[in-house]
Design a protein around this nucleic acid. Structure first.
Length: 568
DNA sequence: GCCGTTTTCGGCCCGACTGTTTTCAGTCG
């Protein structure tokens, strides 16, 4: 038995109970128990006190004991007999929750999306009390859209979608100030929708202008406090606009930035002090509502330091306040060690990349074009690489304010060999090894390839270690914990690729790597000068993983980088 | 279902909006 199975079982039980219309606190209790296990860093074998953890009681404890003893849960088996599995997707239909689904099941025997569709079409649903004609029509249209609509948007896509809305907000003069909120503001890998806080004294005017100016496909809700719409941007996406006054802005921004768990924690804290947090401010015991100039002031009111949006995750950030000061920040970054030039598939010359890095105030950088195996990217042959090295040495002489190192992003070939011989690698300052081919081989094979790169004394770093493209492809599924062990053993760096397409390694693994004493390099993998800017996304993501300044190689001084990496 | 340094019962974060109702339940974030 492993912890994942227990967590999944508890979550499944919650799901089935929800479908039965069970009390949502009861449903929540199972979810909470799953969450408690998930948040506990220990493995199952290390947890001798599992049944006495806060949040795990008689009911959830019995499920865990069942699983430990026989590998299955009686409760889940019973639920699965009562509730047809086809009902689970019903929860994805907007407007349907546990109560209504339970009612549909009980009254009309609805047990799947298909049977719900049929019941709507024969107008049986609108005959039920609590359901009406409008609801029936809405359900039909939602079912129609169910398969067509995307439910999550990767960060790289969100950057573009948010960028399509903001210029329209800039146009509306009645909006004095605005900010994007929600999971996008928290640098989440994927978001399901977009949230904006708008400051205005005339919400109804702003609402009407938004409805006119935006590509609205459907209006979900339109009140004086909020407007919810489905927009037809590059994709169909739901967007929430909240209208607040200037005084309410900080509280609203905090509230709608979330995460939900973070907010729950903050509210519990407020409650323990006799206060009440809402999106409009902090209500005192005498009923007066305090508002704040900024989120900083809001946190300060609770004697807390500013907790930046990307750290507002599962609520445990409130227990890690001591770590806040030591986290890596963008201003700590002194260099970028993975970028391409026109020599392979980049868009700019060495000089242009160097000037862009100087403009960012970096003290050092590494040029790392692809190696010859990667034909599609015009990878460099050994000859071209060595001639580039000469060129870099010469250009480097011209600059006094930045040190340009010569490197490569070398392919690890499908058979596990490396794309350059040791005598070539020995001449370079910095060697990245990456997998760009044969993704679909067994994990064992992939690990053999990675191990062969790790063992090579000239290799300094493994780039984008899992090969994932967020929301598009999984990558090559390496055994990352093992990779981290090797990195510690052989003294190699692992990359946090800062591209919003990648964010690879994942934050969970970054935390594990830091724990194991492995140093991380945050790199943009820039193929153009403007892509050097995604460093800020990389750093924000590193903070989500609680990476300390010293863990991140990019914060090291030029001297230390030379000593511990280049001259190693 | 879980929890308790006011509690072993009665809370559990809080508010907006809609549709179906005649004052509110359900859903959502």
């Amino acid at each position: 038995m492993n912890k994942k199975v227990i967590i999944q079982t508890l979550e499944k039980i919650a799901l089935y109970m929800e479908l039965l219309g069970e009390n949502h606190f009861k449903v929540g209790a199972f979810r909470k128990a799953a969450n408690v296990l998930e948040q506990d860093p220990r493995s199952l074998a290390e947890m001798d006190d599992i049944l006495s953890l806060k949040g795990i009681g008689k009911g959830t404890g019995a499920v865990i004991e069942d699983l430990l003893e026989k590998g299955e849960s009686n409760l889940l088996l019973e639920l699965q007999e009562t509730v047809p599995a086809g009902m689970i997707p019903l929860l994805e239909i907007p407007g349907l929750g546990g109560k209504r689904i339970a009612k549909l099941h009980e009254a009309l025997g609805i047990d799947s999306v298909e049977s719900l569709k049929a019941a709507c079409e024969t107008n049986e649903v609108s005959k039920l009390s609590g359901f009406g004609k409008k609801t029936e029509e809405k359900l039909l249209s939602e079912i129609q859209q169910l398969s067509e609509r995307k439910t999550s948007f990767p960060l790289w896509q969100m950057v573009g979608l948010v960028g399509q809305v903001e210029p329209i907000l800039d146009e509306i003069e009645e909006i004095s100030k605005y900010s994007v909120a929600g999971s996008y503001r928290r640098t989440k890998e994927q978001s399901s929708d977009m949230d904006f806080i708008l400051v205005t004294d005339t919400p109804s005017i702003v609402r009407d202008k938004l409805l006119n100016l935006l590509p609205v496909k459907e209006t979900i809700a339109a009140g004086d406090a909020k407007l919810s719409v489905t927009l037809e941007l590059d994709d169909l996406i739901d967007v929430d606009f909240r209208f607040v006054t200037d005084a309410q802005y900080a509280s609203a921004l905090h509230h709608f930035t979330g995460s939900k768990d973070h907010n729950v924690k903050m509210r519990q804290l407020a409650k323990s002090r006799g206060e009440k947090i809402s999106e409009y401010g902090v209500e005192q015991e005498d009923g007066t509502v305090l508002t704040f100039e900024s989120e900083e002031d809001f946190f300060a009111h609770f004697d807390l330091p500013f907790i930046q949006p990307n750290l507002r995750q599962n609520g445990r950030e409130l227990d890690r306040l001591k770590e806040l000061d030591g986290l890596v920040t963008l201003s700590d970054i002194r260099g970028d060690f993975h970028m391409h030039t026109t020599a392979s598939d980049g868009g700019y010359s060495i000089r242009e990349m160097a000037d862009a890095c100087r403009a960012r105030g970096y003290s050092h950088m590494v040029i790392t074009d692809h190696s010859h195996y990667l034909k599609v990217a015009n990878g460099l042959t050994p000859e071209r690489l060595l001639s580039q090295l000469k060129e870099i040495r010469e250009i480097n002489e011209e600059y006094t304010d930045i040190e340009i190192f010569s490197g490569t992003e070398m392919d690890i070939l499908p058979d596990g060999t490396l794309d350059f011989d040791d005598d070539v690698l020995a001449q370079l300052d910095f060697v990245i090894a990456s997998i760009h081919s044969s993704f679909n081989k067994s994990q064992e094979k992939i690990m053999e390839r990675l191990h062969s790169a790790m063992k090579n004394p000239h290799v300094d770093m493994i780039a984008h270690p899992t090969g994932r493209i967020i929301g598009k492809r999984e990558g090559y599924n390496p055994d990352v914990p093992q990779l981290i062990k090797w990195a510690a053993q052989y003294g190699k760096l692992l990359e946090l690729n800062a591209s919003p397409y990648r964010l690879d390694l994942d934050k969970e693994y970054l935390e594990m790597a830091q724990e194991a004493g492995v140093s991380i390099a945050i790199n943009t993998d820039a193929h153009a000068t403007e892509q050097l800017e995604v460093m800020s996304i990389g750093v924000a993501y590193a903070q989500k993983a609680w990476l300390k300044k010293d863990t991140v190689v990019n914060t090291w001084s030029l001297d230390r980088f030379k000593r511990e990496i280049v001259d190693k």
